[in-house]
Simulated scan of single mutants.
Amino acid sequence: MSAVRKGTDAFLFQFMVLLCAIWGMQQVALKLAAPDIAPLMQVVLRSGIAALLVGALMLWHRDWQGWLSATWRGGVLAGALFALEFFFIAYGLLYTSASHMAVFLYTAPIFSALGLHLLVPSERLRMLQWLGIVLCFSGIAVAFGAGLSWAALDRQILLGDALGVLAGMAWGATTVVVRSSRLSEAPPTLTLFYQLCVAFVLLLGYAVLTGQLGPIRWTPVSIGSVLLQGVVVSFFSYLAWFWLLRRYLASNMAVFSFMTPLFGVSFGVLILDEPLSLSFVVGALLVLLGIVLVSNHVWLRRQLIARRYAERHLP
């Protein structure tokens, strides 16, 4: 018998604000520490540290045993896509701002919804979701308009923004793999371990083959960024998200999760002093509105129905 999940309360709101602030800080931390340690190496170390922590937790709980034979193929594929996502993030941050990356990365729900629409009959898109997809891609086009001049710097920004969208596509594809395979039934720690472990192996191998292991300067900023990424983000926050999913309605949590790009943009402006153009702000708002419509269409429909019911029956 499945547990009854709760709706929104003060604890969920406060916890989600904390998680979204942590997630919004990811790209800013990578960018801030880039002069001391390349974003690619930060991602490699982050994945390795978190994989060790999650692996130790799995050995303690032992709830993953019996799942390996049924999930390893999907796990390896999900891990490869996870590695691809952070490969695009690491290289994208060399060209664009953390604020731009925070917005374009979170186009992932759009791509996962499109993938699930094609592969899973029960996940067919509704009219409200198609409207959200149109708004999201319109917002991407408007935001890209911030860098459409032919100056070299603007072309670099466009390249970084495009890599951010590709990172969102890889993240969305990872969600499709998890949802359409036995991983959807497996313990969350096993799914997370697949992603972290495979990403560590692939990205470290790429760094070794391309000679990108260094140089590394261990400064307070670089150490803080690696620990934030590996311990706080990839270990604590992801497991906390899964813990919340067992206790609260996923639709309510998804509504709050869209604070993350707002935190990312805010931190980028406040900490890195990144500029914001009007076209990017307008485009980002359209992207966020589209994501909300795609990911929360059921919740939105319920709210509209409840409002109409109240209007008809209130004196």
Rank of each mutant, 00 (worst) to 15 (best):
D9R: 09
F11R: 05
V17A: 14
C20G: 11
A21G: 14
A21N: 06
L30G: 06
L32N: 03
R46N: 01
G48P: 01
L52Q: 01
L53I: 11
D63C: 07
W67E: 03
S69V: 08
A70T: 13
R73H: 12
A80T: 15
A90Y: 11
H100P: 02
H100E: 10
F104D: 02
F111C: 03
A113L: 04
L119E: 00
L119W: 05
E123L: 07
V142K: 04
F144A: 12
G147I: 07
A162Y: 10
V165D: 04
M169W: 06
M169Q: 02
A170Q: 02
V177Q: 04
L183G: 09
V198H: 05
F200W: 15
V201P: 00
V201M: 10
A207N: 09
G214C: 10
P215H: 08
R217L: 05
W218V: 00
V226Q: 08
L227S: 04
L228I: 01
L228E: 03
S237R: 14
Y238P: 05
L239W: 05
L239S: 07
S251H: 14
S251D: 13
F258P: 00
F263H: 08
F263D: 10
D273T: 13
L288W: 13
G290F: 13
I291Q: 05
L293R: 04
N296W: 02
N296V: 04
W299C: 02
A306T: 10
R307H: 07
Y309W: 07
E311C: 06
L314G: 07
